[in-house]
Simulated assay, not measured.
Amino acid sequence: MNGRFSKMHGLGNDFVVIDAREAPLPMSAGRAQAIADRHAGIGCDQLILIEPSDAADVRMRIFNADGSEVEACGNATRCIPLFLGQDVLIETKAGLLNARLAEGGAVVDMGQPHFEWDRIPLAYAMDTLTMPVGWEHLDAPSAVNIGNPHVVFFGGAIEMDEAARLGAMIETDPIFPERVNVNFAQILSPSHIRLIVWERGAGLTRACGTGACATAVAAIRRGLAKGPVTVSLPGGDLMIDWTPGGSILMTGPATHVFDGEADWERF
């Protein structure tokens, strides 16, 4: 069962994108994990499957490197209009997302964030603006759902190895019944945030679009920032704009790297 794929990335957060609209490709956690393997497979942070949709132009399914299927991926969403060569309405597990081509990338309407504890979700009710919890020297984070769950810590600069250690610990804490994406943010100014993200199911990545959205939203809610906000990740910058009560607009680059062909029966 041969099929074509494209290798793409958004700020270094890389994807294997497969168009399965005309040739359906059954996808299991094991197959997704095998394709994502950087040594024995094609290699990526996330596998993106494009399928037909009755509700939008296409349906996007997202599989992390560990094989888990997740609801949202901002960087991948920016890649879809580039992949298809047109503005597009995308059906995801997080809802319908509008993505339009822009110079060097795309602008995506990521919808409205959610702050209710059971929408994050958390294991029990608590304030999500300033959570009364902590891990080692990290405490009082914010929790935001951007189609997927995020926890955001504000503080000073953090080293990558420490972010990896703490991120792995916090991701699987029982307080987050569906695990969580962990964001380590440093406020540089009201319009500029530095960010490192430990992604649920993928680990440290060079960029996380939903993490940038969650962090900007949390900073604006706390009065630490005012949109539009530049979020600087290891892979580059995203522009996030949000007004309370409205949708999040994310603007950033998307890159097509190469096309290839694979025998999916090998995975």
Rank of each mutant, 00 (worst) to 15 (best):
A20I: 02
T130D: 09
G235Q: 01
I175W: 11
L49E: 08
P174F: 14
H39T: 12
D263L: 11
F83P: 06
I35M: 13
Q33G: 04
S28G: 10
A214K: 04
P244D: 07
V108T: 10
L89W: 07
C44S: 07
M250K: 03
T251Y: 00
E159G: 15
A65N: 00
D14R: 01
G30L: 15
I80W: 05
F267Y: 14
T172S: 13
M126N: 05
R221S: 13
G111N: 07
A163Y: 05
N13W: 05
L249S: 09
M1I: 09
M160E: 13
R119D: 15
A65H: 05
S142K: 08
L122Q: 03
G167I: 07
P228T: 01
F154K: 05
D109N: 15
V144W: 07
V133W: 14
R165H: 12
G95F: 08
G260Y: 15
R222H: 03
V108Q: 03
T210G: 03
I240V: 12
W135P: 02
L25I: 07
C44F: 04
Q46W: 15
V108W: 10
M27F: 14
G43Y: 09
T172P: 00
F5E: 00
W242K: 07
C73W: 05
D139E: 15
F153Q: 07
P177R: 10
G236S: 05
E261H: 15
N183T: 08
I42N: 03
V151F: 11
R4F: 13
C208L: 10
